Amino acid sequence: MATVDAESIASVVRTRALHPERIAELAASRRQPAGLVGETGRLLLVAADHPARGALRAGDDPLAMGDRAELLSRMIRALDRPGVDGVLGTADVVEDLLLLGALEGRVVIGSMNRGGLAGTVFEIDDRFTGYDAASIAAAGYQGGKMLFRIDPDDPATPATMQACAHAVEQLAGQQVMAMVEPFISRRDEGGRIRNDLSTEAVVRSATVSAGLASTSAHTWLKLPVVDDMETVLAATTLPVVLLGGEVSTDQGAQFAAWSKALASPSVRGMVVGRSLLFPPDGDVEAAVDATVEMMTT
């Protein structure tokens, strides 16, 4: 297992400063995964694309994901556990992991639109500021992920929708996965965007996102776990991965909800970030192992 200490972080910085070409070399030479799913028969990814959107909070700590060495350490600890297939992240995080030697044989999904910065007046205008389909394919990664929030009251929504449709089209052209994470979203009385997690809203967002582009052949949906997942999953024939969501103070209840949703054959995996990397008790390995166990039962 790669280690993340002061020396390894210094090495990453030194390579970035003096030999930036090394990043492309490592991407080109890395051992590719055998497929999108590993030993569990489902896909389990550790997500760390939140920082690029300015969303650093985990639990009660508003800057939990702001310490890069700590974030990388927790990601590598998670990746070292049996049953974890890979990562979802922006280029900076993915390239840090490449330089640390942590992505051999791993599924890598590049995060594409991070322009809707958390807490801004332009948050729903989720522009594509990260990976594009060509860079994902050129690096030998397995797909791209996009956030698609639909705010019925925000005229910026159609532009994001069009951009997501274009990204799905381009990823399909490269024959790599397009992972779409949709929500119906609205601003609350304080002006903050809140995702509507009612069954009706999640079903609607799933059906709209499934219809993006001229083909859905390579599209997977990343959906939140809500009370009536049976109705949500009945809305689409596309493969679904579950969104881990925020860190919960009641981890047992959160795991029970995940386990229930995983019983459906439509659910082909999970993408979990803060819930695994920053569990309430701090035990990353135990949180990952419990999730893997749920995926294999």
Rank of each mutant, 00 (worst) to 15 (best):
V247E: 01
L197V: 12
A139I: 01
A47D: 08
G252P: 04
G54L: 05
T219E: 06
A27R: 15
G252R: 09
G105Y: 11
V121N: 11
V94H: 05
M179Y: 02
I150L: 14
Y131N: 03
G59K: 04
W258C: 10
S209L: 08
T15L: 14
V232G: 01
G130I: 04
D61T: 05
T297V: 13
A64H: 07
G59M: 02
P155A: 12
E189P: 06
G282A: 04
G41K: 09
F183P: 07
Q251N: 11
L103D: 02
Q170V: 06
L44F: 15
V12Q: 03
R106I: 03
E230P: 00
G54E: 10
V203Q: 09
A235L: 03
E181S: 02
N113L: 04
G190L: 12
S198N: 00
A64V: 08
G54R: 05
R106K: 14
G110N: 06
V271S: 12
A10F: 07
K145M: 11
G116P: 06
F278K: 05
A137M: 03
A2D: 04
R187I: 00
E293N: 13
V176I: 15
T40K: 03
P82C: 09
V247T: 08
R53Q: 10
K222A: 00
E285Q: 08
G89V: 00
A213D: 11
L36C: 13
G211D: 10
Q170W: 05
G143K: 00
G269N: 07
I109R: 03
A55G: 09
G89N: 01
E285G: 05
R106N: 02
A210E: 10
L72I: 06
R268F: 01
V37I: 12
T207K: 14
Q175W: 11
A213G: 01
M146R: 07
V168S: 02
L233K: 02
G190Q: 15
P265S: 00
M229F: 03
I76N: 00
P182C: 04
L43N: 12
I23S: 08
N113M: 05
D196I: 05
L98H: 07
Q142G: 12
L243S: 03
L98N: 01
L18F: 13
A102P: 00
A172H: 11
A286H: 10
L71Q: 11
G245I: 00
M1V: 12
S205Q: 07
R14F: 02
V267A: 00
T296H: 08
A69L: 09
G35L: 12
G86C: 05
A256K: 10
T237L: 12
F255G: 14
T199E: 06
A28L: 10
F255H: 14
L223D: 01
L147A: 06
A28C: 09
R74A: 01
S11T: 15
V93Q: 03
A24K: 13
V176M: 10
V272N: 02
T3E: 15
L197K: 14
T207G: 02
S198K: 03
L36I: 13
G244T: 00
A91Y: 09
E189W: 13
E21G: 15
V37E: 12
R68N: 13
L276D: 08
S209V: 01
R57V: 13
A167M: 14
A55C: 11
A172W: 03
T40H: 08
